[in-house]
Write a protein that binds this DNA or RNA. Sequence first.
DNA 1: ACAAATACCTGTAAGC
DNA 2: TGCTTACAGGTATTTG
Length: 274
Amino acid sequence: MPELPEVETVRRDLASLAVGRVIEQVEATAPRCIRRHPSAEDFCGRLAGGRIGEVDRRGKYLLVRLDGGVVLVVHLGMSGQLLWVPAEAVADEPRRKHTHVVLTLDAGEVRYVDPRTFGELFVTTDDVPELAHLGPDAIAVGPADLKTVLRARRTQLKPLLMDQRFLAGIGNLYADEILWLAKLRYDRPADSLTAAEVRRLHAAMVETLNAAIERRGSSLADEQYRDLFGAVGDYQADHNAYDREGKPCPRCGRPIVRLKWSGRSTFLCPRCQR
DNA sequence: ACAAATACCTGTAAGC
DNA sequence: TGCTTACAGGTATTTG
């Protein structure tokens, strides 16, 4: 599930490959994946001929900035992948099922593949008004800002961490990992945290996200998340709580518990997390 | 006005 | 074996 660390991994690799390249051709075959555009012609026409300036990220959104103030925004949703195919390999690698968008650069193809089509791509202006609702990036937020966020109206800690309006970049997986490291329960009222607990949460957030980026993200059993080169991430091996139901808590040895909560799975150590 | 629930999707796996 | 059902969950929208 692409969250901040996975998107950041793709961002770095895409930047190293694509900056300075020209988009020679664009194909878009799934209307749902470009649903903000009236037509494929509109989407493709705005990109064709553009030269890639830089590749940024805001939360889980990838921002491919083209010369002239045009921005291609990519959100991978649940099952989206961006895959790089070098020009010399294009003929040998047929496009996989669910390949919905292809950008042809002078050095190769960037293919957008997404079975569940929760992800999307759209072209906008460089101020990206569509993302104005996003809160500060989870990896860049300071302790003081986090304190402000926690005083928000929402009550419970986990949905607040996952609310992109308050903090951008955290999803279900990293919320569980961060809360485990911070020794905090998912259902703690956000405004009940002591100053020390807020500091712990902040440290856990920065540490977890940076460690996951270092390991190129998490891929679960379904291996839905792949990087730009089709490789899985390594961070799942370092998970302490997520997807570890029944396995011992690395801190206290008691089994990790899985809860069905708010329609989603939550993994925690009921002994360590208070 | 806010928060909880639901719709959108398909591949995989568990269960009968 | 083959079918049905449950599940994964980010975001937008609907409902309460």
